[in-house]
Amino acid sequence: MTAPVATLSDARLSLAGNAGRVDILKGISLKIARGETLGLVGPSGSGKSSLLMLLGGLERATGGTVEVLGRDLTAMGEDALARFRRNHMGVVFQSFHLIPTMTALENVATPLELAGVADAFDRAAAELDAMGLGPRSGHYPSQLSGGEQQRVALARAAAPRPDILLADEPTGNLDGTTGAAIMDLLFGLRDRHGATLVLVTHAPDLAARCDRVIELVDGTLAPRAKAAE
């Protein structure tokens, strides 16, 4: 295994709920290699998405460490995490999460602009073209179909050429055909740019396309995953 791009050591996450604190992740230790495609599977509520959020610095671990590209995310502030994300990560969600007040082009250009890229709009336009969405670049999210929205989200995640792509059930809201097309694009991106891809999915066929699959059960790594690690 090459040098890991991310290392989790006894990472824990517990959140305050109405019925008291709930332990979401109960001590996850995991290494992810550079360029690897990792599938996260498991039943609903097992903590897959939470683990992805920890990796993206979108959620802060309440115990253990989360090290990504040599930086300990648990020791970084909100803004430092934001800057880290824009320089190194792309995130794709099940519900797309496009900014509704921005056109497709503006959505894609935003992370580039935030990173201070000079030709942000040209690159964003090229990325949309690559996704086959050139003619739709001036449209708002509400004017796009689900598949189109997810393609815009993919373009937005990929445009800054991130080291790590995090995808949280990217086909969960799409029909089978559209979902398959999106996954082709996602894996294509990974192949083109050589990024590490961490994918949360329920679909066995998608999981099968990953280099490695780990399973979470009730906030812990299932024995199979432990064994694989």
């Binding site: 993206g56 934001a82 994300r85 999460h97 900014i99 935030l114």
Partner: peptide
Amino acid sequence: YEAAILKTLGATRGA
């Protein structure tokens, strides 16, 4: 919601 997406995309709170 917008702030959450922007932060995910790398925007600082100042931005």
